[in-house]
């Protein structure tokens, strides 16, 4: 399943990049995240526990988040895998940043390929097209709140 979306940050590209690479900021912004801990022996990889509260699926998901292919400050890849509640989720997203004309704002584009299996597919697949962009927006909004105050 192909999904995509955009988000505009009120900050310059370098600041946004720094924010996106900050695991603590990510942990705070992840919707319904209960924990996010680095995986030993790997860089840019974390174990996360996310609590989902949907009809039928009501409980914890164990997942792994990885960042790779970082080309500062332009693009990177985010890979997510998770399982729980008799379901499996897998997805990879390419995230690119471009500054606007003045450089004060940064446009983020994401293009993702996601697979959902099991119980969650029975309800999630149909909703994913609308829920995933909403959750992404929620996430980026929460990230944006953590941007350093403008001078």
């Amino acid at each position: 399943m192909q999904l995509s979306g955009t988000y505009t940050f009120n900050a310059d590209q370098q600041t946004v990049w720094k924010l996106l690479m900050d695991p603590q900021a990510i942990a705070k912004a992840l919707p319904n995240a209960q924990s996010m801990t680095p995986i030993e022996g790997e860089t840019d990889a974390w174990r996360v526990i996310v609590k989902l509260n949907l009809p039928v699926i009501n409980g914890a998901f164990n997942g792994i988040i990885r960042m790779s292919e970082q080309v500062e400050p332009d693009h990177y890849r985010l890979t997510v895998s998770g399982e729980g509640q008799q379901s499996v989720i897998g997805g990879t997203a390419l995230i690119t940043l471009t500054p606007d004309a003045g450089g004060a704002k940064t446009l983020l584009k994401w293009v993702a390929d996601a697979n959902i299996s099991g119980k969650l597919a029975g309800i999630g697949q149909r909703l994913a097209g609308s829920v995933a962009p909403m959750m992404a927006n929620q996430f980026f909004n929460a990230m944006a709140k953590q941007l350093p105050a403008r001078p």
């Binding site: 009809p55 039928v56 697979n115 959902i116 299996s117 099991g118 119980k119 597919a121 029975g122 309800i123 697949q125 149909r126």
Partner: peptide, 14 residues
């Protein structure tokens, strides 16, 4: 079903 065999009409909501 999707072509991976995932049941998309898995609840009464769907």
């Amino acid at each position: 079903y999707d072509d991976q065999g995932q049941l998309l009409t898995g609840t009464m909501m769907d």
